[in-house]
Lab assay of single mutants.
Amino acid sequence: ELREAFRLYDKEGNGYISTDVMREILAELDETLSSEDLDAMIDEIDADGSGTVDFEEFMGVMT
């Protein structure tokens, strides 16, 4: 189920989504998050600083 959700956002099928897209997902899930909260969450999610979120990083957030 998580893989299907990931595929919805990984429109190009390249195995990752951008941190911008991940930020939008988080904002949709919790509309009360401030910009600073979102920045901090993205920094934590994208631990390797690649600017992308792969499936493993995505799973870590969603579980």
Rank of each mutant, 00 (worst) to 15 (best):
A47Q: 12
D10I: 05
M41P: 00
E12G: 05
D48K: 09
T63Q: 11
E24A: 15
R3F: 13
S34E: 05
V53D: 00
V61M: 11
S35C: 09
M62F: 12
R3N: 07
M22G: 00
L26S: 00
L8Y: 12
T63L: 14
E57Y: 08
L29I: 09
D30V: 08
G51D: 03
R3S: 07
A5Y: 15
V21I: 13
D46K: 04
E56C: 11
K11R: 10
R7F: 09
M41A: 06
R23N: 00
A27D: 02
T19G: 03
E31F: 11
S18D: 05
E1K: 14
D43R: 15
T63M: 14
D54G: 13
E28M: 14
L8I: 11
T52C: 05
T19H: 05
G49A: 08
S35E: 13
D46I: 04
D48Y: 06
T63K: 12
S34G: 06
R23T: 01
M59A: 13
D20N: 13
F55Q: 03
S35K: 13
G15D: 03
S50D: 07
K11V: 13
D43G: 11
R3D: 09
M22F: 09
S18V: 04
F6Q: 02
G49Y: 05
G15C: 05
I45Y: 05
L29F: 12
G51W: 03
E12I: 05
E4M: 07
N14C: 07
V53P: 00
Y16Q: 05
F6R: 03
K11W: 11
T32V: 04
A47H: 12
S50W: 04
V21C: 12
S34C: 06
F55Y: 11
N14R: 13
E57T: 15
L38V: 08
L2P: 04
M59K: 10
G13R: 05
L33I: 06
E31H: 14
I42G: 01
F6A: 02
D37G: 05
L26H: 00
S50T: 11
I25N: 00
D48P: 03
D37N: 07
M41K: 08
T63W: 07
R7H: 10
D37Q: 13
T63R: 12
D46G: 04
T52K: 09
Y9C: 12
S34Q: 06
E4A: 10
G51F: 04
T19N: 10
R7C: 14
M22N: 00
D10P: 00
L38E: 01
R7Y: 09
D48C: 07
E28R: 15
E24G: 13
Y9T: 02
M22C: 04
L8C: 15
S18C: 06
I42Y: 01
Y9E: 03
L26W: 04
A5L: 15
D30K: 07
L8P: 04
D10G: 02
M59D: 02
I25S: 00
L33K: 05
T19Q: 03
D43T: 12
I45P: 01
F6T: 02
D54M: 10
D46S: 04
I17W: 01
E56P: 06
S34W: 04
E57V: 14
I25D: 00
M62C: 10
I42N: 01
E28A: 15
E24M: 15
D30H: 13
E1Y: 15
Y16E: 02
K11N: 07
E1R: 14
T63N: 10
I42R: 01
L38G: 01
S18F: 05
G15V: 03
G60N: 13
D43P: 03
G49M: 07
E57I: 12
D39F: 05
M59R: 12
D39V: 05
E24I: 14
E44C: 13
E28Y: 11
E4L: 08
F55S: 02
D37S: 08
E36Y: 10
L8Q: 13
E31T: 13
S18E: 04
E24T: 14
G51C: 05
K11D: 05
D39M: 07
L33T: 03
S35P: 13
A27W: 10
M59W: 06
A40W: 08
F55K: 01
A27Y: 11
L38Q: 02
F6Y: 03
A47M: 09
I42K: 01
G60I: 15
S35Y: 08
G49S: 09
L2A: 06
E28N: 14
M59S: 10
F6H: 02
L26F: 05
F58A: 02
L33H: 04
D39Q: 09
E12F: 08
I25A: 04
E24Q: 15
E28C: 14
S34Y: 03
M41I: 11
Y16T: 05
D43Y: 13
A40N: 10
D37E: 13
G49R: 12
G15K: 02
I17N: 00
E12M: 08
E36F: 11
A40I: 11
D20L: 15
L38C: 02
L29W: 14
S35A: 11
G13N: 10
G49F: 05
N14Y: 09
D10L: 06
S18N: 05
V21E: 08
K11F: 10
N14H: 09
A47T: 11
D46N: 08
L29Q: 07
D46R: 04
G60C: 14
A27M: 13
Y16L: 04
D10Y: 06
G51N: 06
V21M: 13
E44N: 12
E36G: 08
S50E: 05
L2R: 02
I42H: 01
K11T: 12
G51P: 01
D54F: 10
T19Y: 13
I17L: 07
F58R: 00
F58N: 01
I45F: 06
S34H: 04
E56S: 10
E28V: 10
E57S: 15
L33V: 04
G60M: 15
S34I: 04
D46Q: 03
D37R: 11
G13E: 05
E44D: 10
G15P: 02
M22H: 00
E57D: 10
D48T: 09
L26C: 02
G49Q: 10
D30S: 07
D39K: 08
E44Q: 13
M41S: 02
V21D: 11
R23C: 01
T52G: 05
T32L: 08
S18R: 08
M22P: 00
E31A: 14
V53E: 00
E31W: 12
G15I: 03
G51V: 01
M62K: 04
L33W: 11
D39P: 01
A47P: 11
G60Q: 15
G49W: 04
K11Q: 10
R3K: 11
S34P: 03
M41N: 00
V21T: 12
E56K: 10
G51E: 03
L26M: 06
L8A: 14
I17C: 02
D10Q: 02
I17D: 00
D10M: 06
I25K: 02
M22R: 00
A47V: 12
E4G: 04
G49H: 12
L29N: 07
A40E: 08
R7W: 10
A5Q: 14
F58L: 04
G15T: 02
I45Q: 01
S50K: 11
K11S: 10
G49C: 09
T52I: 09
L33Y: 07
M59C: 09
D30W: 14
I25V: 07
V61N: 03
S50A: 05
S50M: 06
R3P: 03
M59F: 13
L8G: 10
S18L: 07
I42D: 00
I42M: 09
L33F: 06
G60K: 15
R3H: 10
D20F: 12
D20M: 14
A5I: 15
K11H: 10
L26Y: 02
E36R: 11
D54R: 10
G15N: 04
L38M: 06
E44S: 13
L29T: 06
R23D: 00
T19S: 06
L38T: 02
F6K: 02
F55W: 10
G15M: 03
D10W: 08
T32N: 11
E56I: 11
S35R: 12
G15W: 04
E24R: 15
D48F: 07
R7M: 13
M22I: 08
G49N: 11
M22V: 07
D37T: 10
M62G: 03
D37F: 06
L29S: 06
T52L: 09
V53F: 05
L8W: 11
G60A: 15
K11E: 07
F58V: 02
A40F: 10
L26G: 00
G60R: 15
E1T: 14
V61E: 02
L2Q: 04
E36K: 11
D43N: 14
D48G: 07
M41Y: 09
G13C: 08
F58Q: 00
F58T: 01
S34A: 06
F6I: 02
T32H: 10
D30C: 12
V21G: 05
A47G: 09
E28D: 10
I42T: 02
M22L: 12
I25E: 00
E57H: 14
D54E: 07
S50R: 09
T19K: 09
I42W: 02
R23G: 01
